[in-house]
């Protein structure tokens, strides 16, 4: 027994190192997981306060408050448009047909932390649970894509930026509707790669890429960017380089879009899978 303790004392440095290193890597892996970043959210409450203060300073310099007022005004108008459009179908409402209810809700938020130089970039918004944000909501800026809300705390939310190797967006070519999946290749904040477009699709440099609306997170038709280059990959698909229309370096105010029918759609789709 004593010799065991002596042995442990002799190699305590190595043991402690392995212990701490394994713990660190455990934390890392746990937090890389798409939906399980609770720890980050908890600490965001604290660090978020610091970021709010420094961002307020930056906001003053760029007079972004004016922008925010405009963004809020926009949201109010967008909400009105959606609901007036749907209320044409008042007949169907009377039989309680949920299909014709309002489908998307818009709200605005301010970015208080942003990065573009890592491989897994995240943004922090100044709104959270209390302001109605939920995980899996879409984030856009001026009608072009930014990312997806990952976790929310009471007053802050973290957003997976499009500039994150983990994120895939279902997207399509506007003019002919061919769809594929878009993800970032980690090289530079201005381009991403669109895969799975078949070779017989007619594409040209400059074509517009938009979201497909298949994913229940993004509405159809949110602008992603424009084709800047493409080449044939082995197999029968194009590898298309897309120049992103969002400038991630100068983001300030964003809109968050909630899909009111998301749960219903997912439930239906899960049911279909089960019945198979």
């Amino acid at each position: 027994m004593r010799s065991l303790i002596n042995f442990l004392l002799r190699i305590h440095f190595l043991l402690l190192f392995i212990l701490i290193e394994v713990f660190s890597i455990y934390l890392l892996i746990n937090n890389n997981n798409f939906h399980k970043a609770r720890f980050v959210n908890l600490t965001r409450q604290v660090t978020g306060n610091f970021y709010t203060k420094t961002t307020n300073l930056k906001q003053y310099l760029s007079l972004a408050e004016e922008n925010q007022l405009l963004a809020e005004e926009n949201n109010r108008l967008l909400n009105i448009i959606e609901s007036t459009y749907k209320s044409d179908e008042i007949f169907f409402r009377s039989v309680n047909d949920t299909i014709f209810n309002q489908r998307y809700m818009y709200t605005s938020a301010r970015i208080i932390n942003n990065s573009i130089n890592k491989k897994h970039n995240f943004l922090t918004l100044n709104k959270g649970n209390q302001q109605g944000l939920r995980p899996e909501m879409a984030v856009v800026s001026n009608g072009s894509i930014v990312g997806i809300v990952k976790g929310v705390s009471k007053n802050y939310a973290t957003v997976i930026s499009l500039l994150n190797l983990d994120l895939r967006i279902s997207s399509k070519i506007k003019k002919n509707g061919y769809f594929g999946s878009l993800n970032w290749d980690g090289k530079g904040y201005q381009t991403a790669i669109l895969n799975e477009i078949p070779l017989h699709a007619d594409i040209q440099v400059g074509d517009t890429i938009i979201t497909s609306g298949f994913s229940s997170i993004f509405p159809e038709g949110i602008l992603i960017g424009y084709i800047s280059d493409f080449e044939e990959k082995k197999g029968s698909f194009y590898e298309i380089e897309v120049k992103l229309s969002t400038d991630f370096k100068s983001l300030g105010n964003v809109n968050v879009i909630g899909n009111l029918l998301q749960i219903e759609k997912l439930e239906l789709e899960n049911q279909a899978v089960k019945n198979d």
Partner: peptide, 23 residues
Amino acid sequence: GLTIDLFSGTVGMHSSATVFMAF
């Protein structure tokens, strides 16, 4: 490392690298 991690939202990344360096 953990302090830096908490501020950059990358828990575990800087701490593991810094611990390795200290080792």
